[in-house]
């Protein structure tokens, strides 16, 4: 029931955005071989982070307790 905290330093959004940027850079094709290889490795890492986060299944719901002095519910 606990939230699977896959992010350590990086949120899913950040990891996904960075991965998209890397793919875009590759598509633009202006990388030298060294850059290509190091970016490819980074891409693998990011994809792993994303996939791990995608494995989270549970959502946690908390109900807000009103404090406005409302009546019945």
């Amino acid at each position: 029931m606990t939230l699977a905290k896959t992010k350590k330093d990086q949120s899913f959004q950040e990891a996904f955005d960075e991965l998209e940027k890397i793919v875009k850079k590759f598509e633009e094709g202006k990388l030298d071989l060294d850059e290509s290889i190091s970016l490819y490795e980074r891409g693998l890492e990011l994809a792993a982070v994303c996939k791990k986060r995608l494995a989270a299944v549970e959502n946690r719901v908390q109900e807000i307790k009103k404090k406005f002095g409302d009546l019945d519910d």
Binding site: F16, E20, V23, L33, S36, I37, Y40, G43, C50, L54
Partner: peptide
């Protein structure tokens, strides 16, 4: 999203192969 991530990976691999 999983599909996009997988596609991104394939795209990266293809691009790297192409570069190589």
């Amino acid at each position: 999203v999983g599909g996009v991530v997988s596609d991104s990976l394939s795209s990266l691999s293809r691009s790297l192969e192409y570069a190589l």
